[in-house]
Write a protein that binds this DNA or RNA. Sequence first.
DNA 1: TTCGATTTGTTCGTATGTATT
DNA 2: TAATACATACGAACAAATCGA
Lengths: 265, 265
Amino acid sequence: MSRARPRKAPRRAGRKAKWALRGIRLPRYKAIKLEVTRALSSGRIAADEPLPTEKQLAARYGVSIGTVRRAMDELVAEHVVVRQQGRGTFLAPFSSERLLNRFWPVFRKDGEREIPIVQTLRFEEARADAETARALAVAEGAPIYRIVNLLLMGGNPVLLDEVRIARALLPGLTEENFVARENTMYGFYQSAYGINVIRVVDRLRGVAADAETARRFGIPAGSALLESMRIAYTFEDRPVESRRTLIHTQAYEYRNVIGGEVRIA
Amino acid sequence: MSRARPRKAPRRAGRKAKWALRGIRLPRYKAIKLEVTRALSSGRIAADEPLPTEKQLAARYGVSIGTVRRAMDELVAEHVVVRQQGRGTFLAPFSSERLLNRFWPVFRKDGEREIPIVQTLRFEEARADAETARALAVAEGAPIYRIVNLLLMGGNPVLLDEVRIARALLPGLTEENFVARENTMYGFYQSAYGINVIRVVDRLRGVAADAETARRFGIPAGSALLESMRIAYTFEDRPVESRRTLIHTQAYEYRNVIGGEVRIA
DNA sequence: TTCGATTTGTTCGTATGTATT
DNA sequence: TAATACATACGAACAAATCGA
């Protein structure tokens, strides 16, 4: 019996060869995903500029288009990039709309969404204490910005937050161009500094309002508030900022959907 | 995942025929995903029984294996099923471990996970008031179970929750076999009734402890607590239960990760 | 406005690697 | 060991959206 031969070029040897990386052998599509992620995390690609096309990536990495597609499909599922038929592939945009809905899950109790109005109460330079240093992965005493904002929803003060971010991440930032931003803070990080916040971790607790916060919210001291301690991360688990937010949940609430990815069509 | 919708349909012929469903044309892989989801939601498939193989599904729906794979890949990404090389594809198991980590994001403040011990304080039959009826999508006055649990972590009472679920969903349930369950509640719904909780929506607020709750937690009345109002859903957005949980966040916290899907390797 | 080039989206098919039974 | 079932990879054809000539 004649050994059945493929009709096409027998061009194959060790097709299954995986890439060695950090000692682990990754499938090619994972390796490509990692490469693309690295390129994005370097900030070299602007938000409105398309990534290389499938064909270009396939050529660059010496794989088939299907393999590139698989890598990109996962990045789409993870909201890192968006693709548009006929246009190309782009960094997931941090429009106010998307950002708000994705990273700012505070709604009016009846479910309506309201756009917050931001008042910057304080903008100052400081040095990282031990806890902040740990959260931001910088040395203790490293220069940071400390920014306090009051956010009004429906005309009422609802959120009070205090942000700490390493000065090294935002070189040349002044209070003037910070408050002049036409954007959410994460959108500002992206457009002005090429820093993409892709993940946040919130730690939520119920706390009693201190005197000053109570005054700002117009409630009795000791009233129950929702506290969120958040650290925001960019690619490769690098921390960007640490943020403490106090939320007046009389008329608003923090919504969390677990398993919301389950969408059939 | 799907992109912008058509503005015009030039309608050319080809084997590209999509399936018409609810008036919308779905790609075949989406249609298959929907079909499989329906089969799972019917409860016909036990948690330890494999789904049909790729080859069988491909034959049944008259598509290539690659198309079936694409449908299953999305279901895997959504945690609806898990696949094991050499074994098959299974409903995502509701093991205590996985359930706890997925649907119960309460951690000790230092980050450690603790397994809660459950005390059932009340188990009674009742009728749905207006709000409960709306949450559970049943008629007002429909028979429900009302279950109150106290959960201890590290030996201390940390969570107090009150569950409301339609009696029609759990026919024949008695307090005896409820408290005798060797499982989390969601695991019990699955193993005993074939009901799979796949999504929950939590609405979080800071609230003051009422007298009874304060007594249970051993704290002063009026102390700040974290309140979670949760509705749990199964396939096709059908509500399963409504739950109010009060959390004593002195030593514990509710963790929420937004963008946690971003995992490169 | 039309048309064609470009780019992503969907579907098919094949070959082979690897884990499980 | 052999059969089974999923995992990775390649390649091709056609559909549909976008954009600029």
